[in-house]
Each structure stands twice: as C-alpha cells, then as structure tokens.
C-alpha cells in the first residue's frame, strides 16, 4: 500500500493574527499517510500540534491570517473545495475529529444516543432520524458502550464512557481518517489503556487511519505507525514510529525519548532544559538551536527537512 495513499499534506501553513503579532502556529508542514495507518504528532505544549489538527479539518478561528498549502484526501485537493462542499463532502463523512478535552464538551441536556446521531443528521449522512439513531447504536456497540447508555445523559457517564461516546460520534459515519487530539490525557491509566485497546481494535478491524496528537510519547506507542515530531510549528523529524522510539535522530527527538519515564528501567528520565521558542517571533535558522547541545554555526541557517535514510526525514544539519 502506498505510504501516502490516503492523505498527503504539502506545505501547510496556518498563521493567526493576535494583538501581539503574527503567531506562526503551523509553518510549512508536509507529510503523507496511508490507509489503515496511524500518524502520531508529538510535541510540547504550544508547538502547534493542535493547530495542525484544526488546519487539516479546516476548523479555523476567526483571526486566521494565512491558511495555505495543499491537502490531498484520496487524491482530491480538499483545500480547493468551497466551504459548503467541504462541509458536505469531507468533514465528518471522510474526516472526523475528536477534539481535546471533548469529554467535558458533551451537551448535558441531550441524551448520549441523540448526540452520537446528531452529526449524521447535520451532515446529511443519514436520511431519517431513526436511521441515524440506528447507526449511532451500531457505533456505540463498536466502542463498547452498552445499548442502554444511549438513553442516558452525559453526566451519568464516567470519563471513560464519555470518551467512548465521543469516539463513537466520530466513527458513526465510518470516516477514512479520524484526527484525535489528546484523546486520553485527562483519563486514568486503566481507562487510558481501555481506550487505546479500543482504538487499536478499530484500526485493525476497519482499516481506519488515525492522526493522534499527543505529548505523551509512551501512550503514543500504542497506536503509532508513523511519527511526526513537531517543534515550534514545524515538523523536525518524520519517520516510522519504531525508528523514532528506538533510534531518534533529531536532537530534539532524542531529548524527547530520553524524557519518557519508565516503570522498570533504572535509568533516570531526563528533561529538556529551557523553553520552546515563542511562535510569535520564532528564531531565524533552526528553531531548536537555543536548547540544542550539538548546535554549530550552520544552525543559523534553517535546515531543510530532507530524507536522510530510507523513509526518514530529519530537519537538522547533522544529517545533511
């Protein structure tokens, strides 16, 4: 299967206008994703990973300054579609989204079943309400939500169950790609393991692709086939997940892996000193320079993201 068979993102930029200046939240991001694979986007808070999710789904706030690039979904450039066509043909039916902290965003006065069915009706994916409910029931069974939960309200459900309902909502239309923004970070360890098991099962059974956005590297390894490491609005390394976990190349990736705590190992986890740069005025050249131990004069110029080994792209002068 082609590696970028399903989704190809080319040079995606998303800049916001704020009263302090221009925030370059996503700055020239490119990657590809094949059907049935999962891409994890890893990075610290404020590196632009959530903005990347919103840029892909075209869920933009009002203060957008620049929104450019190309996004091919099944070979169609969805950036070129009009807002109405995008909403009708792409969003939710082909591209679903599980936003951050979604478990607190369920409507408290609407029954869970109706909420899961709602997007099907809104996006005209189900013709009648009963059809939508039936499909919602199906989706809930799929995520392990017992049928009687459909007629309950969100506050009657535990965090894990709510997260399942949110995932059911995203899966109800059987989209080819689901973008998950920190789906487990607010959950307990056991619930987190449950949700990960669930996502894994769906991935295997339906060949659904996921883009998993997280700062939790250990959890990301549950689902990841491809890893994109983001730093200050840019992808600094793009490779197979196992390569990233076993042998990261970019100095930032190495630091990230070294910071992962482990239950069994005696090795003490390390932390990355310093702060990530502000996206308001990112430094010229390599943006990691300020915190990098292997920096040199070359780093004053911005390194390109190039293929250094087969399938591995790194944005660092060390590998050029």
């Amino acid at each position: 299967m082609k590696k970028d068979g399903l989704l190809r993102v080319e040079d995606l930029c998303l800049h916001f206008r704020t009263n302090k200046g221009l925030v370059q939240a996503v700055d020239g991001v490119s990657f590809g994703l094949g059907r049935g694979l999962t891409l994890v986007v890893v990075g610290e808070a404020g590196c632009g990973k959530s903005s990347l999710a919103r840029a892909i789904l075209r869920l933009l706030p009002r203060n957008v300054h620049t929104y450019t690039g190309r996004i091919f979904l099944n070979g169609v450039d969805i950036m070129k579609l009009g807002e109405e066509r995008f909403r009708r043909e792409v969003r939710w039916s082909k591209l679903a989204f599980v936003p951050q902290a979604a478990i607190n965003s369920l409507n408290p006065v609407v029954k869970v079943g109706n909420q899961v069915a709602e997007p099907l009706l809104v996006h005209r994916l189900a013709k009648t309400k009963s059809e939508a409910i039936a499909r919602a029931r199906e989706a809930c069974e799929l995520v392990g939500l017992p049928g009687d939960f459909l007629s309950r309200y969100a506050f009657e459900l535990s965090g894990g169950m709510r997260q399942r309902a949110i995932i059911a909502m995203a899966l109800a239309a059987r989209p080819a790609l689901v973008v998950l923004d920190e789906p487990t970070s607010a959950l307990d360890v056991l619930t987190q393991a449950n949700i990960m098991n669930l996502l894994k099962g769906i991935k295997q059974k339906f060949k659904t692709s996921f883009i998993l956005i997280t700062h939790d590297i250990a959890t990301s390894s549950e689902l990841a086939d491809i890893a994109a490491i983001m730093y200050a609005g840019q992808v600094v390394e793009l490779c197979n997940a196992s390569q990233f976990y076993r042998e990261p190349l970019h100095p930032y990736s190495q630091k990230l892996i070294a910071s992962v705590p482990s239950l069994r190992q005696e090795k003490r986890p390390e932390f990355i000193p310093g702060q990530p740069p502000s996206l308001l005025n990112p430094p010229k050249g390599c943006r990691f320079t300020g915190r990098c131990l292997s920096r040199s004069n070359r780093c004053e110029k911005e390194p390109p993201l190039v293929e250094v080994k087969e399938g591995r792209r790194v944005k660092c002068w060390l590998y050029q």
Binding site: L190, N194, M196, K200, A218, S221, E222, S242, S262, L263
Partner: peptide, 26 residues
Amino acid sequence: RALLSAVPKLDPANVTTFKEVPPGEP
C-alpha cells in the same frame, strides 16, 4: 497488578498487542 500492567511503556511492539484491563468501573 492491573494498574502496573496498564502503565504505558515505550515499546513499538505495543501497536499489535492488547492490554489486559480489568472489566468494569471503579
């Protein structure tokens, strides 16, 4: 034991294996 086995570990092999999680809720 259940808690310890559910702690996420950085291991590329995780992609294929499912975790043992006790059923039910707290």
